[in-house]
Design a protein around this nucleic acid. Structure first.
Length: 468
RNA sequence: GGACCUAUAGCCAAGUGGUAAGGCACGGGACUGCAACUCCCUGAUCGUUGGUUCAAAUCCGACUAGGUCCUCCA
């Protein structure tokens, strides 16, 4: 079975075929770095991490480009809007460049904690101002963009008939009815900014043919994807909320500037909700990752995200997160047992067990069907049951090694789960010693003391699992 | 107002034409000195309503509820 992905362009699942055999170019919209990342970012980047990991597993050489938006953009194109990075800089009383760098660092630390692999290329908007100016020039030369008296540059949306097709938006119906901005210097209200003139109090600005200014929100992604992936590439990803207008604008810019189709597959993850409402920075109902990680191991947050499909919304729910935490602990214990009991077994040649091969096939089929992680996880849990049975029973070498291989490839490599598989710490040795003494007491039927040891250890969070 | 998505057991969640995966919780059992762990068994006709079909959770229509986008947001 081959890989099938849902393509936003066609609103259908399609068989995945890369432009160049054995290689994939993928661009995912990265964060604007002016605040702490939240659970929504986690869902998005974990989702694309899965796609990245799975494509690698399938043998593709993947070039995964992700931008860092370190230029603040105005809310809309209005003169009165705030530049979010600048705003944060004024609050924290440090330079906007420091703000961007600070939150970029935190972003990556948080993603590392979630075991999200770093993109192969991470690029910043501020590092591509020359190329941005260049593409804006091209669009002006082709007549698709215009410079206003104020020194702003806008894209003529009505010249690009495809605009709105990604989101299936009809501009006539949706935009023409709105009140035209009186103060705007645009030809038409739906036109979007490619370059904005900087007001005197604007901190981040660059010289350009149109005066001192800064790039519009959408142009950086067109520029950087072209630079690193070429005019046409395989996959473009991002959150659903970026479909319109961001990705529409990218298509409009890139296809005209490059005279080539932009992207073959657009993949969008669904959003995180809180009590059914979208979690968003502007709504103020977001849960930041640093806060969440105080109460939950990041890898459990990752597991929680993967229990939902990426195209379905995840409703944040502490009760469910606690449940997930319990499930993950059990799974970890089982897998740790598997690793510790197989660490001395020769792994060179073993016959892959048929039953486990079937589970692995099912797992891969689930992944092939548009990265169905929630179904895939059910096979991991099924294997967990088999591990316990085998460890409590025959301890068949082929079965154990097959299971170990399955966990290693599917749970660890593809899903990016981590289990605490080292038993080497002093603490564990100590527990082992205490446990042995306690077992001795139990043999001597000194239950009063052995129960006290069990209870005392339990009270500091260590559970002894008695086995025959 | 326009476009679109979702609705499956107490909860989470797969399943897109052939009679409902998995997990948690609940209950029963095996194991145990007792317990925990582990294993076994146990639950839904799929929002409502029409229709298409030999056959629908799965396709089409209507309705209801919730959500997203049409301003920045992963």
């Amino acid at each position: 079975m081959s890989l099938v992905v849902y393509n936003t362009i066609t609103r259908k699942k399609e068989e995945f075929k890369s432009i160049n055999e054995g290689a994939v170019g993928m661009y995912v919209c990265g964060p604007t770095v002016y605040g702490y990342p939240h659970l929504g970012h986690a869902k998005s980047y974990v989702s694309f991490d899965i796609i990245y990991r799975y494509l690698c597993y399938l043998g593709y050489k993947v070039k995964y480009v992700q931008n860092i938006t370190d230029v603040g953009h105005l809310v809309g194109d209005r003169e009165s809007g705030d530049d979010k990075i600048q705003k944060q800089a004024l609050i924290e009383k440090i330079d906007p460049v420091e703000i961007a760098y600070k939150y970029e660092t935190i972003y990556f630390e948080n993603m590392d904690a979630l075991n999200v692999k770093r993109p192969t290329i991470s690029c910043r908007a501020t590092g591509h101002i020359i190329e941005i100016i260049d593409m804006v020039k091209t669009l002006i030369d082709k007549g698709y963009a215009y410079v206003t008296d104020k020194g702003n540059v806008y894209y003529r949306v009505n010249m690009f008939p495809k605009y709105g097709s990604l989101k299936n938006i009809n501009l006539e119906e949706n935009l023409s009815g709105e009140r035209i901005e009186v103060a705007s210097d645009k030809e038409r209200n739906e036109d979007f900014a490619l370059w904005k003139k900087a007001e005197d109090n604007h901190l981040m600005k660059w010289p350009s043919p149109w005066g001192l200014g800064y790039p519009g929100w959408h142009i950086e992604c067109s520029v950087m994807s072209k630079k690193y992936l070429g005019k046409t590439f395989d996959i473009h990803g991002g959150g659903m909320d970026n479909i319109f207008p961001h990705h529409e604008c990218e298509i409009a810019q890139s296809e005209i500037a490059n005279d080539a189709p932009f992207v073959n597959y657009f993949i969008h993850n669904n959003l995180v909700t809180v009590n059914g409402q979208k979690m968003g920075k502007s709504l103020g109902n977001f849960i930041t990752l640093p806060d969440l990680f105080k109460d939950y191991d990041p890898i459990i947050v990752r597991f929680y995200i993967l229990q939902n499909h990426y195209r379905k919304p995840t409703d944040f729910n502490k009760g469910q997160l606690n449940t997930t935490s319990e499930i993950y602990k059990k799974l970890s214990e089982t897998i740790n047992r598997l690793y510790s009991e197989t660490k001395d077994i020769e792994t060179d040649n073993f016959t892959y067990d048929e039953e486990i091969q079937t589970i692995k096939d099912n797992f891969l089929n689930a992944m092939n069907d548009d990265f169905n992680t929630s179904l895939a996880i059910s096979y991991i849990l099924e294997s967990s049951k088999l591990i316990n049975k085998e460890l409590n029973g025959d301890k068949n070498k082929d079965k154990l090694l097959s299971l170990k291989n399955f966990i290693q490839e599917c749970a660890c490599e593809i899903l990016g789960l981590k289990f605490n598989t080292s038993n080497a710490s002093k603490e564990n040795e100590l527990i082992e010693i205490i446990s042995n003494i306690r077992n001795k007491m139990r043999e001597e039927k000194n239950y009063e003391l052995s129960d006290k040891i069990r209870d005392d250890l339990k009270s500091i969070g260590i559970t002894l699992n008695d086995r025959k």
